[in-house]
Write a protein that binds this DNA or RNA. Sequence first.
DNA 1: CGTTCAGTTGATCACGGTCAAGCCCAGTGG
DNA 2: CCACTGGGCTTGACCGTGATCAACTGAACG
Lengths: 218, 218
Amino acid sequence: MLAVIATVGRYKKGELIYQEGAIADRVFNVITGVVKSYRSAGNRRQRIIGFLFPQDIIGLADRGRYVNSARAITPVTLYRIPTAALEARLHRNPEFDYQVICKLCRELREAQQHAFLLSKHRAVAKLSLFLQMLETQQSSEGRLSEEILVPMSRADIGAYTNMSSEAVSRSFQELIRRRVISIRERRHIKILDRAGLEDIISEIRGSSKSMSQPLPRV
Amino acid sequence: MLAVIATVGRYKKGELIYQEGAIADRVFNVITGVVKSYRSAGNRRQRIIGFLFPQDIIGLADRGRYVNSARAITPVTLYRIPTAALEARLHRNPEFDYQVICKLCRELREAQQHAFLLSKHRAVAKLSLFLQMLETQQSSEGRLSEEILVPMSRADIGAYTNMSSEAVSRSFQELIRRRVISIRERRHIKILDRAGLEDIISEIRGSSKSMSQPLPRV
DNA sequence: CGTTCAGTTGATCACGGTCAAGCCCAGTGG
DNA sequence: CCACTGGGCTTGACCGTGATCAACTGAACG
């Protein structure tokens, strides 16, 4: 495993793990908690590249420098692996290589999924897809639950889905109004109507269900 | 090299290389030409995941099925590599592995770049960034030229940048009006004002240059 | 030459960004 | 224990941008 050549790091909520542009001398492997990977797009507006969960790798570099920053959004523990040691292993350990390749493929598919999300036009569609992604993430982690846990803030969701936090909020409200989800304590979401969610994601004009049972304020 | 276990394939412009959902028994390595990788998003509207140029790998799979379709947008030649043979090599050839990892990292960075592009608000900013990406792609391929070659249609650019082909067209016209680029025969673009392009990409309200020299029709 | 499809241009309108105000809740200190 | 405060979140109003529909031009093809 990676652990052999690694040290363990602990970060509290909101703490910076590494900064864009710094010399990339280690890669990280999340053990517990959630990390956001982001880029500060000049005008103090930050774009979130992805959220990272246990097992994920962060710290990819281009020409020896980190290409984005990473910050803990919950308390986080992770392995820190010196890149030097890693590279040495990469050249002589095929089994190990293979695992890295698999993780890269996974990350690649997620980046493409993200691009797919961003290419949705309607705000509710983006948010719905985001929720679905969170759910698959959590179910794949074995955390089989009725509720989806949303560890990140509305602003972070906005920075990921490329909408204002206001729009995130409004879209949540619309999903509630349409009886597609319900929210408990702002961080716990339950999906009530999976078919409805799918319809919204595929950007169908008016869902058949919402036609048959008229809703307030439309 | 990959070539040892591969056969060569030829496709004409517009031809399908593989289809989303089909059993993924080979991966491909582009030799010449340009390929688009896309997903048909239900309502006959297709989203382009990426454009692929010589040296690029396509045919990534999830659970044995291709996750997207690929189509030649120019005449294309490529290597076809049976996945079975590939996997066998992956387990026993570290040097080879390393190359695959590098290509995956590159593709990953491109996917993230794509997501970054999609998260721009203004249409001209998206198009400008797209042109910049095309340029870096072509200069890295050694094709050092004054002009950028745009092998794909306006509709394809739209499907990649997530805007209508009309908006692509209008944005091109605006860049011309602002004297940032010039276009020859619709496929050959020259960048006249690199600083101006950068300004537009970083979504600065009004570029200083365009302020100093008033433009028609603004 | 005619047909067809890519690209351009014009007009209209809905969506979401922005600014602004208010609300809710957690954390803090008296 | 309660009041205070600040930040996250929600809601409202207004307006600009680009999607959409539609008409037209131009280019490539047989």
